[in-house]
Design a protein around this nucleic acid. Structure first.
Lengths: 130, 130
DNA sequence: ATAACTGTACTAACCGCCATAGTACAGTTG
DNA sequence: CAACTGTACTATGGCGGTTAGTACAGTTAT
């Protein structure tokens, strides 16, 4: 389920949008699946309907969902591909941070290991065991 | 020289602080070097003295500079190490983004190449040639 | 048609962060 | 004393995020 961190710096509406993108990528929300209604989700997340609507607007802008008054919001065909495409821009973020780390003299191997560990277990950032 | 991007999302005072951190790491600002005065820098950057002071406060918080009324602000001994230490937290950012990319199915090699290219030339993000 | 749902639009208000402006005070240096 | 330094303070404006409340339009089921 999508969760909200009230203390995070990233806006709530963005957390919601990102959360559903993750569910789509995981296969929890297949193409054609119906999103919870704006009002329903606002109750579940203990937030404001306007904030949820803003999240849905963002998801629509990303090509993830499609909405119709009276009907509901649904996962678009090809949503996962749209998300993947948008993801590529995030690689430049990684490059930018890596450049700073390089300048700071952090060993390249340490940073590469960050990537490797992320690919080893994409879930469960905490409480990992080996 | 430290420069300001008025259209960037990151606050100006943070850009200033980050900029001087970069200069320290590059060796342009060695230990004991005197920072420009608050008022002087505010003129150079065409910004407000309060904004510069906030940047200096941030640099003090990071253990990069040390200030004294009537004297000035100076690069602390061990400033580079302090910056390096703070940098390590940024590795978790990389890990978080990499996890999303992994979930999105972006090939690991592509992400690893982001790191490698960043380490190949830490400067000049654009107009690179091979 | 009515009721109950859906998305959507709009205004108003509040809050926090950032930046600016102006003033003032305290310490150091010449 | 004059000229610099950092520092503190209040006030203001702007922007973005969130909440609140209301309203309208479209669909679905009864």
């Amino acid at each position: 389920m999508v969760t909200i961190d009230k203390f995070s710096r990233t806006p709530v509406y963005e957390q919601i949008a990102d959360g559903f993108c993750r569910e789509v990528l995981c296969g929890l929300m297949p193409e054609g699946a119906q999103m919870p209604s704006v009002r329903e989700l606002s109750v579940l997340l203990a937030t404001n309907p306007n904030t949820v609507q803003k999240a849905y607007l963002e998801l629509d802008r990303r090509g993830v969902i499609s909405s119709a008054p009276g009907v509901g919001s649904f996962i678009r065909p090809g949503a996962a591909d749209a998300i993947r495409e948008g993801m590529k821009s995030r690689m430049s973020e990684i490059t930018a941070i890596a450049r700073e780390l390089a300048l700071a003299g952090i060993p390249e191997e340490e940073v590469l290991d960050c990537i490797r560990s992320a690919y080893r277990d994409p879930d469960q950032p905490k409480t990992e065991k080996e």
